[in-house]
């Protein structure tokens, strides 16, 4: 997806610059076009462009639009259950990205309760773990 989106972006940019370059070369661009018969004078764009330059511009802008949308990163979940499910499911989603950013379940502290940490029990548990040879990977 990333490669094709980049190709679209580059193509769009090339066509867009080519169209404007061609436009600048045209001798007719300098002359004012005849007044439009349908449009009122206020919104008459007053430009004089051959149809191929117009088409090229439109196509290149469309290509760029598609390329930018396709190359944008994945959307982040805005539904609570989807976001929470991702935290439970994958380690990547739980990774800490900085101070106060990322991390797992924000409510896990309600069950760990760092304010009530029983340090003496934790020390004993650790000493027992070392005595066991530090093998058993006790999770929690």
């Amino acid at each position: 997806m990333g490669l094709s989106a980049n190709v679209l972006n580059i193509l769009g940019l090339v066509f867009l610059s080519h169209a404007s370059y061609e436009h600048s070369l045209l001798p007719s661009a300098a002359q004012a076009p005849p007044q439009s018969s349908i449009l009122p004078s206020v919104i008459d764009p007053n430009i004089n462009l051959p149809i191929d330059v117009v088409l090229e511009t439109i196509v290149s802008v469309l290509l760029l639009c598609a390329g930018v949308v396709l190359s944008s990163p994945d959307l982040k979940p805005i539904q609570w259950n989807v976001w929470a499910g991702r935290l439970e499911r994958s380690k990547d989603a739980r990774q800490i990205k900085g101070f106060g950013q990322g991390g797992g379940n924000p409510y896990a502290a309600l069950e760990e309760r760092p304010g009530f940490l029983d340090i003496r029990a934790k020390r004993k548990e650790f000493a027992a773990w070392v005595k066991d040879g530090g093998q058993g990977d006790k999770v929690q």
Partner: peptide, 16 residues
């Protein structure tokens, strides 16, 4: 960033 991981409930290996 591993230093920012809250250590209270980590397993002994991480604490070590």
């Amino acid at each position: 960033l591993a230093l920012l991981e809250p250590p209270t409930n980590a397993n002994p290996q991480t604490a070590l």
